[in-house]
Amino acid sequence: MDLDVFVAAHQAEWARLEQLLGRGRRLTGDEADELVALYQRTSTHLSLIQSSTPDPMLTGRLTQLVARARATVTGARRGGWRDAARFFTAGFPAAVYVSRRWWIPTALISLAVAVLMGWWIATHPEVQSAIGAPEDLKAMTKPGGEYETYYSSHPAASFAAQVWTNNAKAAAMCLVFGAFLGLPVLGILWVNMENLAAGIGLMGGADRLDVFLGLILPHGLLELTAVFVAAGTGLRLGWTVIDPGLRTRREALAEQGRAALGMAMGLTVVLFVSGLIEGFVTPSGLPTWARIAIGVAAEAAFLLYVYVLGGRAARAGEVGDVELADRAATLPTAA
């Protein structure tokens, strides 16, 4: 398609649509019908340009025009169950799916660091001594010790609520502090992996690593995945500060920030499920294999949710941002 010829052929229609939009509610019946027809045609023009001859400046202009026309034609939307359903079936899983190139490497590197640190603690008694006095460490790792009684030290409901609150706070910090070039996110990750490594190392050094894994895996798989998703999204937000792409830095941060806000709400639900497992399943009398199976099932369900629903929505153009009509108009900038 010859872009110059296409623009020359339809420039008048776009100008007329912009003129009608500028009149607001002062439209006659015929003008309102004309606006709807021009909106539909301009939407088609935008789709053709995006698929055949993408031009950043022209695409940005028509995107702005179509968004304004859609808002005028459809009127103000009211939030409700439909928006919530769209968020959980498309927006949130798509945002997690789109961010996978950030949170999957974050997860792999973080777990590798935790395992290496845990091995170092388990095989070096002097490191264990630096963590705590021998009698204190023995009290923590012995059968019936603090590591085992921790999960049943409070009533299940209050413990689940406490765990949920703490984990949601950590995830929110990762998302919020991502704007500071992602550096605080690395600190939050380090503290989490340090705590995990201490458990692996101390229980491994006491030859009770199997007990520790039986306690941490039921809830830890989903919980850590949520933390890694939050951390990866925060790091992505930090990178956007450095490299905003074909948008102004403000526009890029606004888009990523809106997606991160939605991610925070979605991860709150994921961490709620993890908290329920930690409060009711981990300290339960179920066999270890059954508790771990519940944790694996919850993790598998989340990953299927992300890769099936999220992948489908992402391929349809969903990125976890608010709907086009609700966004501020933006124009791409030159690279």
Rank of each mutant, 00 (worst) to 15 (best):
L27A: 04
S99H: 15
A197L: 09
E18G: 15
M140T: 02
L189E: 07
E18I: 01
A168S: 09
F6K: 03
I188Y: 12
Q50I: 12
E299H: 14
R25S: 14
Y39K: 05
R236L: 09
P287C: 10
F302Y: 15
L196G: 12
A301W: 14
A293Q: 01
R250A: 08
G279F: 13
I121G: 03
M1R: 05
Q128V: 05
D30F: 07
A171R: 02
D321C: 00
V296A: 13
G205M: 04
N192G: 00
I49N: 02
A37P: 02
M263T: 15
N167S: 04
A301K: 08
E194W: 14
V36N: 04
W190H: 08
V269W: 05
Y39V: 05
E135D: 15
L27M: 12
L48T: 14
T44R: 15
Y147V: 02
H10S: 03
R101F: 13
R78T: 13
A168K: 00
L17M: 13
D30L: 12
L271M: 13
L276V: 15
P93V: 11
M193G: 01
A37Y: 11
L189G: 06
L246M: 14
T165G: 09
R100S: 06
A114F: 09
D2V: 03
G91K: 02
G262F: 08
V191F: 12
D33A: 07
A206D: 03
W102T: 08
R236C: 00
L202F: 04
M57S: 00
P143N: 01
H124P: 00
M1S: 08
A314H: 08
G60V: 00
A231H: 08
F92D: 02
M263K: 04
G279S: 11
W289I: 09
A122K: 10
S158W: 07
P93S: 07
A157F: 15
T248V: 01
A161T: 03
R312S: 11
T330F: 04
R86M: 05
L21C: 13
G145I: 11
E255T: 01
R26H: 06
G144F: 06
I49D: 01
G91W: 01
T72Q: 15
S99K: 06
W239R: 08
R70V: 04
A161W: 12
V270E: 06
G266Y: 02
A95F: 02
R70E: 15
V296W: 13
P283A: 09
E255S: 00
L271W: 08
V96D: 05
Q128P: 07
W102Y: 12
A226G: 00
